[in-house]
Design a protein around this nucleic acid. Structure first.
Lengths: 254, 254
DNA sequence: ATAACGCGTTTCACTATGTGAGACAAGGGA
DNA sequence: TCCCTTGTCTCACATAGTGAAACGCGTTAT
């Protein structure tokens, strides 16, 4: 089945996004997989729509700010961000450490919102960024409560790149970990994604048990032992329940 | 000249975005201006690409989280946000008030970052908000230093909706104000956009005088008189110069 | 000074993708 | 039970897109 014109344009957009810097046509030509004239026209249509910008001086294409505008609407309309905001702020004030709100998107963790600690810790996550599910607290918390079909699909998308010495490698190890998380009701990041970074996380579930997000409190091994994170368990569970309740009211008003 | 398939799809996406809530096909059909089957297929292709999501229970379409993922890349790659962040954090800590970083996009103010030293929050989720240029400090600061052709184009896009009793109405009044801003080097929001909200703003200019952004310190009439904002002028100018320097190094590495 | 090369842009015969009227399906209301 | 609304599908037709090749421009090599 053909990919369609919109699909082709989006694959070119993704390619430019993946470069992380402005690119010239010739720099994406091989990877794009289209003849030069076709690629040229796809780039032109993306520029025309504001999804890419073109620098005549440098002959480069970069992602356009229209994406930022649209994303704000998407964040507002389609993420837990707006409805969770007050709960996260209260949680961050209460626990004094970094709080993350995430959703699972194509088997990966999309950081939807984040509150920094009173003493900020340098770490990978930023709101809007995407991270791995298999080696993050929020990722594992969400994976653990997926239905089997969704889980199978999500597991296929895990790269199992070894980020640290603690990273879980492979589906079997991960499945065992997810079973333990289901039993305990909480997940931990034991420096699996970034050395020195630990967290405790819970899923955000609807009344019928469907995963709609994940919430975590993150710290560093300098500040807390893993055991010490237990004090955050109850506040996290309460906050997740509040978000789930508010989300349900918001998604399905009476 | 036809709008192209990508253009049609984007106009449907914009329409869904403009509703601010999930919508059914029938709710956008009249405004979309396409026959039902055509609209249906455009919606399907947007869903397929993750730009929209579809809720089978409610038969509604909403913006997809793929936009949030792409937008973070766009923010990182194509806005001043990343390069300006340390400067804005330092400025916010120094002045103790809210700092906004903005860029002009299609004649409107696109808020790229926002800092408040007293409430350390991750602002990407607020990035992407769009505001009017004619009645905001950062908007007027940027408009004032545009070349004439760009200014003319931008002025055509101003709605001149009267937000408050102080809002400037009309091109002539605005041009006079912009001339005063060029002379003074700073712009003010004198409760023109929101009652009670005031700010002092400066443009961010390249070495050759091209506008690449705007920076402001915002307060309220309860906290400061307009005159009292003068203490922020020098820090703002210094911060804008730092951002311009760092942006130039980043956009045009030696 | 001239030729060759690299990269971006344009052309045009051809075709793949998209169009849209109308039919069909399903659910709800009268 | 019938009618209406909304969403989905079909298919003859049309348009927008395709891609090889040529063109244009600037740079580099001879």
């Amino acid at each position: 089945m053909s990919e369609g014109t919109v699909g082709k344009a989006m694959s070119v957009l993704d390619l430019v996004a993946s470069k992380g810097r402005p690119v010239r046509l010739v720099e994406v030509q091989d990877e794009a997989g289209y003849p030069k004239a076709t690629l040229y026209r796809l780039l032109q249509s993306l520029v025309k729509e504001g999804l890419l910008t073109f620098s005549p001086e440098r002959q480069t294409y970069a992602l356009g700010l229209r994406l930022v505008r649209l994303a704000h609407s998407a964040w507002s309309q389609s993420s837990l961000g707006p409805v969770a905001r007050p709960v996260i702020e209260a949680l961050a004030a209460k626990v004094g450490e970094t709080v993350h709100l995430a959703q699972l998107d194509q088997g990966q963790v999309l950081y939807v919102d984040k509150r920094n600690a009173l003493r900020p810790i340098e770490m990978f996550s930023q709101a809007g960024k995407v991270g791995p599910a298999y080696c993050t607290g929020v990722g594992k918390a969400m994976l653990a409560f997926l239905g089997e079909a969704e889980l199978e699909a999500a597991l296929k998308r895990q790269a199992f790149y070894q980020h640290t010495r603690s990273t879980l490698m492979g589906t079997e190890a991960l499945r065992a970990e997810l079973a333990a998380i289901r039993a305990a009701g909480v997940a931990y990041d034991r420096e699996e994604h970034e050395a020195g970074i630990i967290c405790i996380a819970v899923p955000i579930l609807t009344g019928s048990g469907r995963v709609i997000g994940g919430l975590s409190v993150t710290s560093s091994v300098q500040r807390h032992s893993l055991e010490a994170l237990e004090v955050f368990r109850e506040p996290l569970i309460e906050a997740a329940a509040l978000i789930a309740r508010d989300a349900e009211a918001w998604l399905f008003p009476a």
